[in-house]
């Protein structure tokens, strides 16, 4: 065994490119974290002092005066529109995903077209969804409902909470469809075969074996949809949000105030920017906290489902 002495495991020379590249990835990560921390620190530092129970629990009379303003209607509006959206988007998204994974012939042109449409839907700018909501839900569905119901004045055919929520549901549909499809595909084919071999129909197999297993994945889709929708302003701009209204929304056909939109109003419509700034910071802080809270709720539900699946009854 000649030459074994020459073989050693020390690096002969300093590998500049390895060092450079690992440094670069670290810097990029640090940059992202830096931005996030800057935003959070800035908002919390400036918003915290203006935040009070009075602020979050008051229906405002003057939006730009710290003493008389409050954001209760905005919190309520944002929360309700996200919940209503969830109620619509989850069933429709899940059923579509079930069709695509379980029923649609995998290689057919139609299936490919539907898949491409779903993916493209995710790439449509949100203001376009707003226009779609206005054109389809309000001017088509709403106006025709008014006609059919013989409403003397327009009830459904105008911007409303329900139309804003539906527009958001359409916008977040791809998120739920894709997440559900992924979780359906991850279920071992052996489970489906076992069920079918016992004489279960396809429907029984989907309802009793496939869906319970896919539930955590479906809820992940729900969480992503909630995160996306909670902060969106553009889709609701034309479909239901208002700058100011007296009191809280009482029916699905009422308009509503919204935290994200209120941030826009505060930053653009005030006569005295400096006086409004504390209100603005506090509102942004509440918006962040609300988004976070909505996410936590969804994550807790998912954790419960996972635990139940593991423990089994």
């Amino acid at each position: 065994m000649n030459g074994t002495q020459a073989r050693h495991f020390r690096a002969d020379k300093f590998d500049f490119w390895s060092f450079f590249f690992s440094g670069l990835t670290g810097l990029a990560t640090l940059f992202i974290i830096g931005i996030l921390v800057t935003i959070l620190v800035n908002i919390i530092y400036n918003g915290w002092s203006s935040l009070s129970w009075h602020f979050v629990s008051t229906i405002p009379t003057d939006l730009f005066n710290m003493k008389t303003t409050g954001i209760l209607p905005m919190i309520v509006g944002t929360t309700i529109r996200v919940f209503v959206m969830t109620i619509f988007v989850i069933p429709v998204g899940v059923i579509t995903a079930i069709y695509l994974t379980e029923y649609a012939p995998n290689t057919s042109l139609i299936t490919r077209v539907i898949r491409a449409a779903v993916n493209n839907l995710a790439g449509v700018p949100s203001i376009v969804f707003g226009l779609f909501g206005l054109g389809f839900f309000i001017n088509f569905v709403g106006k025709n409902m008014d006609l059919l119901l013989h409403n003397p004045t327009s009830v459904w055919g105008r911007p409303a909470l329900i139309w804003a929520a539906l527009t958001l549901a359409v916008m977040t549909l791809p998120v739920v469809i894709v997440a559900t499809e992924e979780s359906l595909k991850a279920i071992p084919p052996g489970l489906r075969e076992a069920s079918l071999a016992l004489g279960a129909t396809k429907l029984e197999t989907i309802l009793k074996i496939v869906l319970p297993q896919a539930l955590p994945g479906i809820l992940t889709g729900g969480i992503l949809a909630v995160s996306r929708a909670a902060g969106e302003v553009a889709p609701i701009l034309l479909t239901g949000v208002c700058t100011y209204m007296v009191g809280l929304p009482h029916s699905p056909t009422d308009q509503f105030m919204d935290l994200g939109y209120h941030v826009f109003i505060l930053s653009t419509q005030s006569n005295d920017i400096d006086a409004t700034r504390p209100i603005l910071y506090a509102t942004v802080l509440v918006l962040l906290m609300l988004t976070f809270a909505l996410n936590i709720v969804a994550i807790l539900i998912r954790a419960r489902v996972r635990k139940k699946l593991r423990a089994l009854g």
Binding site: L191, E193, A194, L196, G199, I209, L312, G313
Partner: peptide, 23 residues
């Protein structure tokens, strides 16, 4: 469905449902 009730199957890879033994 009737056929598969009369002709049961056991697979290569054991595939119990993620449920209880009883279920």
């Amino acid at each position: 469905i009737e056929l598969r009730k009369r002709v049961g199957m056991v697979f290569q890879k054991s595939n119990p449902f993620p449920k209880s033994i009883y279920e």
